[in-house]
Amino acid sequence: MSADLEYTWTKKSTGGYAAPGNEDGILALDTGGKVTLTEGRGACRGRGGSAGW
């Protein structure tokens, strides 16, 4: 993912979130509200609650 750009992940009806076009990675939300984004090249970012990056 490129720096300083905004991306929208779409919630899937089967659970989880779909990455925006031409992007790969995994967006996860745990039961405590912690968001984790693992990008296709292995970089991982996380944030507690509903706060932005």
Rank of each mutant, 00 (worst) to 15 (best):
D24G: 10
R47I: 09
G33N: 03
V35E: 00
C44I: 15
E23S: 06
A43L: 14
R47W: 10
L37Y: 01
G48F: 08
A51R: 15
L5Q: 15
R47G: 04
I26E: 05
T10P: 00
T31L: 10
R41G: 08
G49L: 13
G32Y: 15
A18G: 13
T31H: 02
G40F: 02
D30M: 08
G46Y: 11
T14Q: 09
A51T: 11
R41E: 12
R47L: 14
V35T: 01
G32P: 01
I26W: 05
G42S: 04
A18V: 15
G33H: 03
A28P: 01
L37E: 00
G15R: 09
G42I: 09
G33Y: 03
G48I: 13
K12V: 14
A28V: 10
G40S: 13
A3E: 04
N22C: 14
D4Q: 06
G15F: 14
S13C: 04
K11F: 06
R45F: 14
D4P: 00
S13T: 07
D30Q: 07
G40M: 01
G16W: 15
M1C: 01
W9E: 04
K34W: 11
G16K: 13
K12I: 14
P20T: 13
K34L: 13
E23H: 05
G33S: 01
G33K: 02
R45V: 09
G46L: 04
G21V: 04
D4I: 05
D4H: 05
